[in-house]
Design a protein around this nucleic acid. Structure first.
Length: 277
DNA sequence: TCCTATGTTGTATG
DNA sequence: ACATACAACATAGG
């Protein structure tokens, strides 16, 4: 159930495949994750292609490949709620929910994209220029383009919406998902149901700062972790560790946390430090 | 049986 | 056209 840092972690799972040639491609064309993809063309082009590099931005993963005839190929993976990448030794049977399998027999392995719930998706593009679904992503929250002014302007245009819902909007907060949004609001001491238009300039500034901080720390703790094991959780000083516990306590105030649906998603906050109005 | 789930998108309404 | 709200997608697990 990946957000910014988990996506980066999962991206690196296919690192053992870099520099190796794909011999065969196996896929299940009826799987929802392949909606809109020309599966026959994808399979034909990726066969004999070499995996060159990968990158992650927002919740999107991009793999760059070179076809046997030299053409540049671009494979996109979005993990949705339950998507996962793995590398499996060659010859093992396919498991359930494995929708795209790239066999690299010379390396003795297969690269696998699995997604039981199938909210994720695969995208494919051939040609020398990067596809729009990659180039059109909003600037990363860890980049210099993610300015306080950009955030202020974005919130101004969504004055009536609860801040929790707006933090989930990928056009301005790429990579932020449900747990990161709750973590940011908790650190910024802003109640998730507050309307964007009523936040003070000081609160918006705090929100901007905590967004960058949470993203950086999550990338450091989760995104850079050893991919041989499961991804690590942030420390117990974070809201993250307590948000699903029954009777969970705020790690700062030690007072009870509250949960409710806000902006269409289950939201956790600390009433002792996040108040309305 | 019923409820929940770290995401996105299409559609309806204002 | 734009902002907002919400059902729908599909499956597994408590």
């Amino acid at each position: 159930m990946p957000e910014l840092a988990e996506v980066e972690f999962i991206r690196r799972r296919w690192d053992p495949g870099l520099g190796h040639v794909i011999a065969t491609v196996r896929l299940h064309p009826r799987a929802r994750v392949l909606r809109g993809v020309d599966c026959a063309r994808l399979a034909r082009r990726l066969a004999s292609a070499r995996l060159e590099s990968s990158a992650a931005a927002a919740k999107q993963i991009l793999f760059r490949l070179t076809a046997a005839d030299g053409e540049a190929l671009w494979l996109g993976i979005h993990l949705g709620m339950t998507g996962e990448l793995r590398v499996r030794p060659a010859g093992l049977p396919d498991a359930k929910s494995e929708h795209l399998i790239l066999d690299q027999p010379a390396a003795g392995q297969s690269l696998v994209f699995a997604d039981p719930r199938m909210f994720g998706r695969v995208q494919f593009h051939a040609g020398s220029t990067a596809p729009e679904w990659w180039t059109q992503l909003a600037p990363a929250v860890t980049s210099p383009e993610f300015t306080l002014e950009a955030v202020s302007e974005f919130l101004r245009r969504r004055a009536r919406a609860p801040i929790k819902a707006v933090l989930l909007m990928q056009q301005r907060f790429p990579g932020i998902g449900n747990w990161m949004a709750d973590e940011i609001l908790w650190r910024a001491a802003i109640h998730p149901a507050r309307r964007c238009g009523e936040l003070s300039p000081a609160e918006v500034k705090k929100l901007h700062r905590e967004t960058v901080w949470v993203a950086r720390e999550a990338l450091r703790i989760i995104g850079a972790a050893d991919t041989a094991a499961a991804w690590p959780d942030p420390p117990a000083t974070w809201l993250f560790q307590h948000r699903w516990e029954d009777g969970g306590l705020c790690p700062r105030t030690k007072k009870p946390l509250e949960r409710a649906e806000i902006g269409g998603r289950t939201t956790c906050w600390s009433p002792a430090r996040q108040t309305l109005a």
